[in-house]
Amino acid sequence: MILKQIPHLVSTVWGGEKLKKYKDPEGSFDGPLGETWEVSTLENGLSLCENKQSLEEALEGKILTYLIKFIDTNKNLSIQVHPDNEYAHIHEDALGKDECWYILDAENNAGIYLGLKDEVTKERLQEAIESGENVNELLNFINVQKGDFFNIPAGSIHAIGEGVTLVEVQQSSGVTYRVWDWNRMGLDGKPRELHVKKAMDVINFKPSANKLEYFQYKNLDSSGLLTSNNYFNARIKVLKAGDESVLSLNGISSIVMLEGTCEIDDTEINEYESAVVKDIESAILKAITDSKVLVVKQI
């Protein structure tokens, strides 16, 4: 069964305008559009099937281990970190959050903040937060371009910078601890809540866990595997118009169109649209135009 999805739209203080072209062509969405939750069973951000049934209901009790988002930034995101399963279970009664990013577009000199610079200790970071320093100066800034990929394990301090559009695949969890938010106000005109104590508990300060190679960096603009973990694997498929590819599927899989238009079992999926594939072991993906597709399979 192919279940095309209607995403949950999220207005954020840092959101941009690019996603509105695909998700709000009538211009009815109010505010900057930062995230679209394309494939989600989280209660506070359910994606819907075309019949308006929630994906959670359509899966009939089956557990979805991942969540897929498009993210577009007009300003920097907060510097933040996500806990692992053990910490999240104890403190939030929730799952932790591993995630990964595939860059779809980036303005000149745009980038991400990822990992701490050499010799930044827990004490040094705490001091910077308490004394009102610009915390971003303690993180590595990495210029990004289309096709860049980064895996972000739980415990990794990070922020997406302004001028970046990406697709995120993450563990199905909503737990985020903000470390620093650029001394700005939220959409309600008030400072957004920080979670410094919990963040300091979970940040991985090991030097080896703050190096670029730890984040599985690669630039992939052709077909290939992005990453595989305990929850999902994510792969890019690049097809020329008329090409066909047989997809071996298991569990609950998702097809996300990054460029172009494809058909899967006679269901057309256009650029920036997503579909969940349920109870099908294999399917034929046919490119109507030159296409780039993200295929996510549940482990």
Rank of each mutant, 00 (worst) to 15 (best):
A234M: 07
T41Y: 01
S291W: 12
E273K: 11
L48S: 08
T267Y: 09
L46C: 01
K62Q: 12
N151H: 12
T73Q: 02
S223I: 11
Y177M: 05
L64Y: 10
H91Q: 15
V39G: 01
C262Q: 04
E273L: 08
E92I: 12
V169E: 03
V296N: 08
Q80W: 00
S40R: 00
I288G: 03
E119H: 15
N140Q: 12
L258T: 13
F232S: 06
L114E: 01
G186V: 04
S291N: 09
V135H: 02
S131Y: 03
P32S: 05
S156T: 13
L212P: 13
S54N: 05
E213P: 05
N233H: 14
S156A: 10
E17A: 08
P7M: 12
Y217H: 11
Q5Y: 10
E281D: 13
I68H: 05
G189Y: 07
H8Y: 14
N51F: 05
K240R: 06
H82V: 00
G96D: 02
Y272G: 01
N74K: 10
P25I: 07
S54H: 00
I264Y: 02
L139Q: 07
L48A: 11
V167W: 00
S254T: 09
E137L: 14
A241R: 02
E259R: 04
K69L: 10
S54P: 02
N109F: 02
E43H: 13
I63S: 15
L95Y: 14
F29N: 12
G174T: 07
N74P: 06
K23D: 10
G155A: 10
I68W: 03
S291K: 04
G96E: 01
Y102N: 11
L42Y: 08
K297M: 13
G251Q: 11
I6N: 05
Y66T: 00
Q126P: 06
S282W: 10
L95I: 09
V246M: 08
N143T: 12
V179P: 04
I2N: 09
